[in-house]
Design a protein around this nucleic acid. Structure first.
Length: 214
DNA sequence: CGACGTATCGTATAGATCTT
DNA sequence: AAGATCTATACGATACGTCG
């Protein structure tokens, strides 16, 4: 039987659309994708896949995009971005599982202790770490200031925390007295220049602003 | 005017997330 | 999993509106 007779025949999801008599066949999959496949798919003893890599593929764990099957262990993700996202998600899940365990707390405390003793021993290292942190906080603030939703969320959370704190201070007479004492102390420690700036110029400016608004 | 009450800021630390 | 980095929280200091 001439080999070209394979044209039009279907094997699994693959239909032969061109047969030049060689070891390979040009096929179209049910999904419409065309490709070159081994003539082995026509043999009754063939046990391998009879579909295109996309129909045999699996969805990306992050975005569900189908990852074509390459005949080996399928990838979990479709791209570098999804690989990173998956790693981060899995790490977050791990953190949720372990964060309250004794072992995690101990490991974490040991790390922080090592870091602290390094910072004690090397003041320059300590300063560079603090500077890094200040830079990160500044960046975080700037991000907040340019994103009104983020800023509003932060301020709302902040207000709630402060309200709780003040409530706590007021509920404890000793703490409240101490709070007022510190405030008076600050007030009386002001230099004449600072006093003038805050309570004289400040008041005038605020009054002006108020007038402009009205 | 001085003092109080509360809002906001700055920084250290705790906690969460990302990278290696 | 460890270590690095980023973000949230705590808290004292400061700023400012308001009241007696």
């Amino acid at each position: 039987m001439p080999k070209s007779d394979r044209i039009g025949q279907t094997f699994g999801k693959l239909t032969v659309i061109a047969d030049h008599g060689g070891a390979q066949l040009h096929c179209r999959c049910e999904c419409g994708r065309e490709g070159i496949y081994s003539r082995a798919i026509t043999k009754p003893s063939y046990r391998g896949p009879k579909a295109c890599p996309w129909c045999l593929g699996s969805p990306c764990e992050e975005c569900d995009t189908i990852i074509p099957n390459k005949g080996r262990m399928p990838a979990k993700t479709c791209s570098e971005a999804c690989r990173v996202a998956r790693a981060n998600r899995r790490e977050r899940e791990r953190y949720e599982r372990i964060k309250d365990t004794e072992h995690f707390r101990a490991t974490r405390a040991a790390y922080l202790e090592r870091l602290a003793s390094l910072m004690d021993a090397y003041p320059e290292l300590a300063e560079s770490i603090r500077e890094d942190h200040r830079r990160a906080v500044r960046a975080w603030r700037e991000r907040q200031m340019s994103d009104s939703v983020l800023r509003a969320c932060y301020l709302e959370a902040h207000r709630q925390r402060e309200a709780k704190r003040l409530e706590h201070i007021r509920s404890d007479p000793e703490a409240y007295t101490e709070h007022l004492r510190r405030q008076r102390e600050w007030y009386h420690s002001l230099s004449d220049a600072d006093y003038h700036r805050i309570f004289v110029e400040g008041r005038e400016e605020r009054a002006l602003r108020k007038n402009r608004r009205e």
